[in-house]
Every structure is written in C-alpha cells, then in structure tokens.
Nucleic acid binder design. Structure first.
Lengths: 297, 297
DNA sequence: TCAACAGTTTGTCCAAGACAAAATGAATCT
DNA sequence: AGATTCATTTTGTCTTGGACAAACTGTTGA
C-alpha cells in the first residue's frame, strides 16, 4: 500500500495541515498510521476520500456532516446531486466529455476547433467552454474521469483559446483591463473565457496569468493606467479567503480603478463586497461592460 | 503601512508558516508586529525582504548566512552575483527585457513573433525563450522588474508557444511522451520548451500542464501507452522535494516507461537518481531522444 | 418575507520541542 | 591533486493541545 506524509496530502487534496489534524481530532477521520518518528502517514484510500470530501465541501456541504461519514454515504450524496439537475443533457457536451474520458486528444481537439469556427469566439466560450468546464468538474466528482483527464482537457482548451485570442490584433481600445487570479487560485480557464468574451468587444485586455500577489496587482494597475482589474475564482477556492483577499486588494487599489470579481467561489454570497463588482454567470460580463461604458463621460 | 497575516505572507513569498516562525526564533528575522489576538502581522517591507531572501536561497545561499543580515548586505550579494557572469551580453535579449520592464506588451509580442518566424520553433525555444527566461529571473533578483512583469512575460511567451505547437498537426509518431510538472511546481515554460523542441522531431507529445499528482501521472502513463514521462522543475522548486518525489514516481511507474527530469532545481546534483534520466540544458533533450531511439529494437 | 439575535461550527494561529535529511568541513586514502 | 569517508552543524518540517474570531445555522419577532 501507498502511504503519504501530511505535506503530500496537503498538496494533493488542497486541505491544509492544520485542518487535517483538527479533523482527525474532531471527527475521527482521517486516521493515518504513524511511522517510527510518530509522524502521520496517510493510506491512499483515505487520501481519495479526502479529495472527495474537498469537492463535496466546494459544493456547499459542511464538514461536521460529511467528514466521519462512511464512504458509501458520501457516494450516495454524489449520486443524489447528479440526479437533481438533468445534466443539462446537451448531447454535444456529452460527446466531448466522452472524448476527454477516453484520452482521445486528437478528436477532442478537432471537435473543439470545429465548434470554435462554427460559433465564433464569444459564443464558443459561453456555450461550449463554460458548460463543458462545469461538466468536467461534475464528472470528476462522480469518479467518471480522473485528475489527468481534467488536466488534459484544460490544456486542450487553453491551447485553442490562446491561439484564438493571440490571433486577434491587440485592440488598443477602452477600457483597459488587467486580468489575473489571486495567489492560491491556479485555474486559468475563467480568465481566458472572460478575455475571449471581451476582446471582440474592443476591450484592451492584458492578462498576468494566475497567482499574482496583491501588491503586484495594485502596482501594475496603477503603472499601466488600467481602468478595470478583473480576477476570477474557481469553485475550489475557499470563499472565506476570497472575500478577505478582495477587500485587501480593493484597499490597495486606486479608487478610480474598478474591481471585477467572478467565478463559482463567490456564488451564493449574500452581501456584496464594497467596491467590488461581482460577475457570476459569464454572460454578465457583457452587461458589466455596457454599464461601465455608460458611466463614462 | 500595510500589514499582512502569516497566511498571506506564505502565499506571497512561498515560505511556509512553520519556516517563518522558526526563522523568527533562530535569526530574529522577520519580526512581525502583533494584533489584539497576539497573531503576527508582517509589515510590507519585511515581506519584500523575505521575497528577496527566497530568491537568494534559490540561488544557493544558506539561511543562516543571509536571514538576519541587513538589507544592504543582501543587495550587495545581488550585485556581486550580477557582476560575475557578464550577463551573456546578448543585445537582442536585453532589448526584449527592456520591453518586459516597460510593459510594452505589443512590442514584446511583435519582437518575439519575429524571432520565432526567423529561427523556427526549435531554435526559438533554445536561443530566445530559454536565455530570456533566465534573464528575466535575474532581472527580478536585481529589482529591475517586478512580479507582474515576470507574469506578463510568461503569458506572452506561452501564447506564442502554444499557438505554434497547436498549429503543428498531431504527429502520432514515436516515442509517445507524457509531459507535466509535479505538485508544487507551477512554472510551465520549461515544459513548453521541451514540447517545442521535440514535436518537430516527430515525437508524440501530450501535456497535462502543471501540478499533476503522482498517482495520476502513473495511471495516465500506463493507460495511455506512453514510452516516456517527462517532468520539469524551475529553480524555485526545492531540490530536496524534487528528489524525493522523483523516487516516489519512479516506484509507481511501470519499469518499461522511461522517466526524464529536467530543469534548474536538479542542477548541481551529484548523484543521479536510479532510473531517472536527468536533462539539464535544454539542448540535452535531443541527445536523450537520440539515445532512446537507438536503444529501441 | 425580512431582520436581528444567540448558538454552533470551523479554519487558522500559537508555543516550544524534537528529529532526520542535507550541507559542510576535516581527515584520510588512492 | 582528486576522491571517499566521517563527524558536525544547519535547517525544514512535524508534533501536541489549547484558543479564538469569523462564518454559518436556525429561531424569534416584526
């Protein structure tokens, strides 16, 4: 059997060391074995369960109710979830998912390319990439695909979107927008979808990729004369940290610069954050753009 | 003044909470203030110094000698370093660096594109991207550019390389190679450079992007019928963890599958790791490919 | 239906100690 | 000189148990 030390488990599951230890104390799970030094060693099956737990937490479940429950109960929760929404039952999306599942990267690439050409960049992002991205996350949760397949999918889509975005001449238009994610958020697809949606509208987009420290975002926004800073969050990003970081970033940013935040991590937030424009479905970004332009003299 | 809690400092500097606390105990630096709860709050200037320390450690310095030293001493170390190698004094590279420094993204893009067309993909990777990447790291160390500029550079190069790689038809040739980085390594440029070098040689490359868990790499390699697994490390990756993770991956991989590892983190390793092919300068990858092909029946 | 309240849950932080892996430097042998 | 062995420091990571505020829950009252 394969045993992992606590640091490896933190990296593989995204659950912090402190949290792993406190769960063990409170919910009697996980229960790692110990090595000669007395240090925790987690069996692979417990790590698998932790990954599942992480995903269920992202979906809105609470630790007290699910950590400690046996595996069957958790799987039942997954099944219950996947029955509720009829999977949006889009046959095209399902076909793409199947290509991901079987590692058919050439077919996947060809099919995506076809959709891109047929729909155009904006609709491709909104009608193919966004739902497909959700569907891949869902399929992972159900155990139908693995992490490797998820990564493969991300790479393929990224190649396509970056090629398409790069082939459009830099606009030099307004507003000038700086795009990035905060430290800890490594998912870039949300960012690329926003860029794909806004570039055809004549927005001047500059992406810094993922995980830019707050201070550097603020400095770049000031120095580059940007009008808007846009950051994106995946469902995996802890909402608690997202809110704190957004407040902090807002404080460091010049008041004249707008701050847009979007993505699943902020879904279901009751109170909006002062000075932060929340954009949840991807389509909202066009409305936000129209609003921004209307507010300019 | 701007004060950051310990978790934010960990994310911004990459130095773990435990390490931050133990440095404070041993070297009397950093010395954060405390809030009402008694929790650490780090002033921005100490965080800046921590970032510099991190970089110096990556360059081979040892904590006992540099943490605790005043800022001027550290800056002197940086200067001493940059005088030693005459910066490879390539005028073209310097011009590109200047474009990065000034946020001239349009010019940067155009110049890179020009080099790519002129040199071809392989030489572009080896003669432009690789040295430019090093030079950007060096410029960051000297404080000539910030993190935002570094990210901007990475994005631009990534767009170009991905477009170029994507425009080549999938080869279906041999060997079949799986490329990725290990959890904790987020730099993708090394991977893209390898892909750019090998695809024109007819190698069938499949990239999983960054940070794939070991178990998923092994499973994907088995399921996809790959001949070679290639992983890349940046200078920022702790060599200690790299060696441990490579041993672990080697153990999980089928014996018939070769494991290639490259990148700055393994530079200066005395003993090679059993069953791992180490590739340090980018050019070596072609030699390794020739060797692999020669060994096939 | 919404707002305010009290109660519970939960992630993160602290302290000081411990230890093994890695780096260093000295000594010894080809 | 160059390589190999050994002892000594250095250094990051892990341990325990306690503590607390922010966020969430569910109830009460308008």
């Amino acid at each position: 059997m394969n045993l992992l030390p606590i640091a490896a488990v933190e990296r593989d599951t995204g659950i912090g060391k402190d949290t792993l230890r406190v769960w063990e104390r409170r919910y009697a799970f996980p229960q790692p074995t110990r090595d000669a030094k007395g240090e925790r060693l987690y069996p692979a099956e417990q790590v698998d369960k932790l990954r599942l737990l992480r995903r269920l937490l992202d979906q809105g479940h609470r630790p007290g109710n699910i950590v400690g429950e046996p595996l069957e109960t958790l799987l039942a929760l997954v099944d219950a979830r996947s029955e509720a929404p009829p999977a949006a039952a889009n046959a095209q999306i399902e076909a793409l998912i199947e290509a991901v599942r079987l590692h058919h990267s050439a077919e996947l690439r060809a099919a995506l390319q076809q959709h891109l050409v047929k729909l155009g960049l904006q609709r491709f992002a909104a009608e193919v990439v966004a739902p497909l991205s959700d569907a891949v996350g869902e399929a992972w949760l159900q155990g139908r695909i693995g992490v490797a397949e998820e990564h493969l999918f991300t790479e393929q889509v990224q190649n396509l979107l970056r090629s398409a975005i790069g082939s459009l001449a830099p606009s030099g238009g307004t507003p000038r927008m700086l795009l990035t994610t905060l430290p800890g958020e490594e998912h870039i697809l949300g960012l690329l979808m926003v860029e794909a949606t806004l570039i055809p509208e004549g927005v001047h987009c500059v992406s810094l990729g993922t995980q830019t420290p707050l201070a550097d975002i603020a400095e770049a926004a000031r120095g580059g004369g940007f009008d808007i800073v846009a950051v994106s969050f995946s469902a995996a990003f802890p909402a608690r940290q997202a809110v704190a970081a957004l407040r902090q970033l807002r404080a460091q940013l010049l008041p004249g610069i707008a701050l847009w935040a979007g993505g699943a991590a902020l879904r279901g937030k009751r109170r909006p954050i002062d000075g932060v424009c929340q954009i949840d479905p991807l389509a909202d970004v066009l409305a936000a753009l129209a609003a921004w332009r209307a507010a300019q003299p």
